[in-house]
């Protein structure tokens, strides 16, 4: 008798485990509230995606990134500076 209960218990345990494992797919992805940890822009792009990066500044160097953007803005938008 005890062997039969043991087998039934094992079956019950296995089926419960399978059921729990199948529910894992139903869980939602974590939604974190509050401020996000976004990578600062001056850190540059992910490696392998550098094809469109403008040369002339160093990724990770905030000062060089800022001066590159300022120079680009001055040259691109300030036509009074180009032809006073």
């Amino acid at each position: 008798m005890s062997a039969r209960y043991g087998f039934a218990g094992l079956v019950k345990l296995l089926s419960t485990s399978c059921l729990m494992a199948s529910f894992v797919a139903c869980t939602e992805t974590p939604q974190t509230l509050g401020s996000k940890n976004d990578q600062p822009a001056y850190q540059g792009v992910q490696s392998g995606h550098e094809a469109f990066v403008r040369p002339g500044w160093t990724a990770g160097d905030k000062t060089s990134w800022e001066s590159a953007l300022r120079a680009r803005g001055q040259y691109g938008a300030n036509d009074h500076a180009r032809s006073p």
Partner: peptide, 22 residues
């Protein structure tokens, strides 16, 4: 998402600031 990654582009578009552009 990671700057310039495919996941970021799919959701938000290009990250030009991280490319040193305006």
């Amino acid at each position: 998402e990671a700057n310039g990654s495919d996941e970021e582009f799919e959701k938000y578009g290009r990250n030009r600031l991280a490319e040193g552009k305006l």
